[in-house]
Design a protein around this nucleic acid. Structure first.
Lengths: 132, 132
DNA sequence: ACAAATGATACTATTGTGGTATCATTACCT
DNA sequence: AGGTAATGATACCACAATAGTATCATTTGT
């Protein structure tokens, strides 16, 4: 069971690298070298972060990617939502509406609790907090 | 993100039904009618529970499945382990050893905490507790 | 012997994740 | 103006997990 998928993971690393780089604009090629991530895959991730206005892209020679959002405002949960959709534990139950019986409702409540705790734990995490 | 997959879900329902049935031995056909689960799929699940000694199967006419373990000793976590493997949130990180950098270690610790909390919440849940 | 049940096993379909490939577009630099 | 270094857009491919199906063999009560 994966809480964090590979693209979210790579996004975190790429953003961390850019945030801690002395350069303002970092080209994808440098990130590929540094993070040892397959180039086309990383580019797809960076493009997505650009569309979501977390990064700004700069085309042409000397181009690359720069942060739009400050590292302490880039939340892990936001990245998870971008690459994995909303974080919810109980998809399978909600898909089979109406609730087939009492039991799964008891379970659903339990699961919702766990989900709440999870969100509480994750919500303060930002790129900045991971760099410390 | 699914905490509980469909087979675990069906297993919970089937075991709950058998536990609350007046009959000792319940045939698969009855479970199919009652739970509205695809027949061959449910049978596969029941066979697995038989092999894992949660249920005992009775062949031949008048056969079916009966509980081996008391409902208050059938733990949800046990069922999850049977059908989904051990419950762990951080597969993705552990797969990429050695740890690529400091950041993911911070994250890993966080995730381990969440996992611990999850297990604590789930561990008391049994078939009996879901029936109340 | 027959019918009602499970055992065993192999196959198929759908989806999500991870990754690749290609061509178009932009912009700096000489 | 043109070459080159960069990203944009898009479509495709591979693999594994989940969900479900199909078939035939075996057992057992009547």
């Amino acid at each position: 069971m994966k809480l964090i998928t590979r693209d979210t993971d790579y996004a975190v690393r790429a953003l961390s690298f850019i945030a801690s780089s002395s350069k303002d604009i970092v080209p994808a090629a440098e990130l590929v070298r540094e993070l040892k991530v397959p180039r086309p895959f990383l580019r797809k991730i960076l493009q997505r972060l650009n569309k979501k206005k977390v990064l700004r892209s700069h085309k042409g020679k000397g181009g690359g990617f720069s942060l739009i959002v400050a590292p302490n405002k880039i939340f892990l949960l936001g990245l998870i939502r971008i690459f994995q959709g909303p974080l919810a534990l109980n998809e399978c139950f909600l898909k089979k509406l109406p609730c087939p019986n009492m039991k799964s409702c008891v379970l659903r409540r339990k699961i919702k609790n766990i989900e709440g705790h999870m969100l509480n734990e994750l919500s303060p995490i930002t790129i900045a907090s991971l760099l410390k």
